[in-house]
């Protein structure tokens, strides 16, 4: 198997062919913030939190999303520069500005990856005007609910349902700020003919957008590691605790 040697944050690391910068970094104890990435699912580069700077020949750097960029021979990568810190902060603020996030009354309060990301990126207020779109809440499914106010369009639900459950109930409709996750061909979730009610999308969701019916403030704890457990059991026959 071919192996690449590269530098991440002044540290020499090796990466197997096909590994991403994110995988190479995490195997070497270098952590890069991520939101749309979830162990067990494919990567799509939706959130851009994992941006890193890659040196280019002749000087300067280019930005690359670590979760979807292959590690290559002699790459020189920085994961934590002032520029990256500022961009990550902007991304988090824009996510808050795009929908309606009210942590104090949210089902995911204290168990939310977006809320945590704000803490880790030093976001103590949002510099942009809130868009305050009118968003629906779909409570038609007997067991689960969807609140578009909290959705960050990471598409983890889409990938979990497609790749792990094999149902492909979810997709994304619309463009720009009008993008919305939809079930079937934009039918109410409860009327979906493909949904098996397995709950994998709910497990995957980083925010309070997908939840168990009857959860109230702070009660929704997503079991996000269950998906990688299932995938490893299936594909590698590894049943980790």
């Amino acid at each position: 198997m071919s192996v690449h040697t590269l530098r991440i944050d002044e540290k020499d690391v090796s990466a197997r062919a096909g590994q991403t910068i994110l995988e190479a970094a995490s195997e070497n104890g270098i952590s890069i913030p991520t939101l749309c990435h979830l162990e067990g699912l494919s990567n799509v580069g939706a959130c851009r939190l994992c941006l890193v700077e890659v040196a280019v020949v002749g000087g300067g750097t280019r930005l690359a999303a670590a979760c979807v960029t292959a590690a290559a021979e002699e790459m020189v990568i920085q994961t934590d520069t002032d520029r990256l810190r500022e961009y990550r902060k902007m991304i988090v603020e824009l996510l808050f500005a795009e929908r309606n996030h009210v942590c104090s009354v949210c089902v995911a309060n204290n168990h939310c990856e977006l809320q945590e990301m704000a803490v880790s990126q030093g976001v103590d207020h949002v510099r942009y005007d809130y868009l305050e779109p009118r968003c629906d809440v779909d409570l038609s499914h007997p067991r689960f609910g969807l609140d578009h106010n909290r959705c960050i369009l990471c598409t983890r639900c889409v990938r979990a349902c497609d790749e792990v459950e094999g149902a492909h109930t979810w997709d994304v409709s619309g463009r720009g700020t009008l993008s919305r996750v939809v079930t079937d061909l934009n039918a109410p979730w409860g009327a979906s003919e493909t949904c098996t009610s397995c709950g994998k999308c709910v497990m995957a969701c980083p925010t309070g957008a997908l939840f168990h019916q009857s959860s109230t403030v702070s009660e929704m704890i997503h079991e996000r590691t269950r998906l990688s457990f299932l995938v490893d059991a299936r594909e590698k026959k590894q049943w980790h605790a």
Partner: peptide, 19 residues
């Protein structure tokens, strides 16, 4: 000092904005 989430983000007080 912006004191508390309503001052900082609008929070519950701003729930009415999308209407």
């Amino acid at each position: 000092v912006s004191f508390g989430d309503c001052a900082v983000t609008g929070n519950v007080t701003a729930l009415r904005n999308p209407i």
